[in-house]
Amino acid sequence: MAYDKFQILTSTAVPLPLENVDTDQIIPARFLKATKREGFGDNLFRDWRYNGDDSLKQDFVLNNPTYSGKILVAGRNFGSGSSREHAAWAIYDYGFRCVVSSFFADIFKGNALNIGILPVQVSPEFLDKIFQAIEADPKAELVVDLPAQTISIAATGESESFAINGYKKHNMLNGFDDIDYLQSMKEEIKTFAEKSLY
């Protein structure tokens, strides 16, 4: 499924300063029963966002109108646990295009890149600076510059670079996905696969 190109994103951010946010929190298993990729954003962080009677939990950050934006900033080891791509779909569908953390779980990171969410891994120190900047001013903007591979806090100009491999960067910049690439080399794959032992 193609996604919008990612170039330079300037946005306010939503802070979630918790560690080990697992994909069961991002989207609980009971909301994985769809056969289409639609409406997952409604259940993003379902059990942190809503009480059992579907009323809003007022103390959760997504229910606080002070915070908004296309960037989610979270504590270390974001996206651990289940491989459910639904977690990335829920984040995208809710309106986020970028998640910033000091450490990502492997499968989540891959899923995010595959659907057009940019995972930006920063140092623990820079993550703290971002949290502090948002705490001081909830309207503080972050600038995520994919071509330059930098993230900066607009108000202070403080900046850090982040890593992404050249192939994935090219895909994100252009809205391409891996399936297009694999389809283009199908004959090479078939030659290889037919020699395979299994």
Binding site: M1, T35, R37, L182, A193
Partner: peptide, 29 residues
């Protein structure tokens, strides 16, 4: 199958298991 410079490997899979929850959107794709 192929090494991409500054990128991932194109990696052949021998066996693929699927179940009802994470496959329907792939088939739709």
């Amino acid at each position: 199958v192929r090494k991409i410079e500054d990128g991932p490997d194109v990696f052949l899979i021998d066996r693929h298991f699927i179940h009802e929850v994470t496959s329907p959107v792939a088939f739709l794709g």
